[in-house]
């Protein structure tokens, strides 16, 4: 089953106090940032710090993502040379505009994997789309590489590019969100929404999360651990949905046992979309991994 990515938590790559135990907040993914949150003078130290953290800190199986600088900057290549060796789960490319951006970076990652005895293809990729051009190329980006596990909207740069700004209702993002979401779904990868930067506005954040969940997004990039619980709460299925999902799964198992081709529940036929939805509900409810949950 596809990995849950309800929350991708940013952590500035040069902050040891945050990096050392960011896992305690239990986001679905941790994203170490080497890009916008790091000043030009500290690019090197953030790179070394994230690399050492990935090698030495136990992130308890939480997906580790590193946002590197673009290859069009003087830092991008050095970031990859240092970080790929440290084996994060995912490299996130910022400001992706074309599928060539992905293939260019993929070639370098493959070369570094080869040089360091890392199975080629082990390092996954994630692309952030932050411009009108990127949004229009969303599908070709989404299908550009087998390594690509998801695409994300970066709205701050995007709205500037559109010559507008962000509104509480997010009407200016409707097209980009729809485009990115559809591209991701067509490519069968994750779709992650942009950040919400006003930490103190819990109500506004809630509204936006409900909005993007309804659109179909898998989750959101977040900038403060305080936002995690809210997202997970909104994404949590209702007890009724869980109950129904369990019934669906039970019906399938029963049908398999009886070698019956037609599966029905309460007189209604169960088809593939219903099963998929049920599986997703149970995944969001954490039913599958309940046993192994150790509460950290």
């Amino acid at each position: 089953m596809e990995k849950l990515r309800r929350t991708m938590l940013y952590v500035p790559g040069n902050n040891p106090a945050m990096i050392k135990d960011i896992y305690i907040y239990q986001p679905d993914s941790i994203m170490f940032d080497l890009e916008d949150s790091i000043s030009l003078a500290e690019k090197d130290s953030a790179r070394f710090l994230v690399s050492e953290a990935l090698t030495n800190v136990d992130y308890l199986g939480i997906e580790t993502v590193v946002r590197v600088n673009g290859l069009d900057t003087e830092f991008g290549l050095a970031d990859l040379e240092c970080i790929v060796k440290a084996q994060p789960d995912v490299i996130r490319l910022p400001k992706t505009e074309t599928s060539e951006d992905i293939s260019e970076m993929e070639a370098i990652i493959a070369r570094i994997e080869l040089e360091n005895n890392i199975p080629v293809g082990k390092t996954k990729m994630f692309a952030a789309i932050e411009s009108a051009k990127g949004v229009l190329n969303a599908y070709s980006i989404a299908t550009s590489s087998k390594r690509l596990v998801g695409i994300a909207l970066g709205a701050e740069d995007y709205v500037t590019n559109l010559r507008t700004n962000r509104s509480p209702e997010g009407i200016e993002l409707l097209f980009a969100r729809g485009q990115i979401l559809n591209a991701a779904r067509a490519a069968n990868i994750s779709a992650i929404d942009t950040i919400y930067s006003d930490i103190e506005n819990e109500e506004g954040f809630r509204r936006e999360v409900e909005h993007i969940k309804q659109l179909g997004f898998d989750g959101k990039s977040i900038i403060n651990p305080r936002q995690i619980d809210i997202v997970h709460e909104i994404y949590a299925p209702k007890p009724k949905e869980i109950e129904y999902a369990l019934q669906v799964i039970a019906a399938i198992q029963q049908a398999e046992k009886e070698n019956s081709g037609v599966i029905s529940l309460n007189g209604k036929m169960i088809d593939k979309p219903i099963v998929e939805r049920a599986e997703r509900v149970l995944q969001l409810a954490g039913i599958n991994d309940m046993e192994q949950s150790d509460g950290r």
């Binding site: 305690i24 907040y25 403060n224 651990p225 305080r226 619980d229």
Partner: peptide, 11 residues
């Protein structure tokens, strides 16, 4: 506090 760690423990 707005310290996320303190809030986590408190919650």
């Amino acid at each position: 506090t707005t310290n996320p760690k303190e809030l986590l423990i408190a919650k």
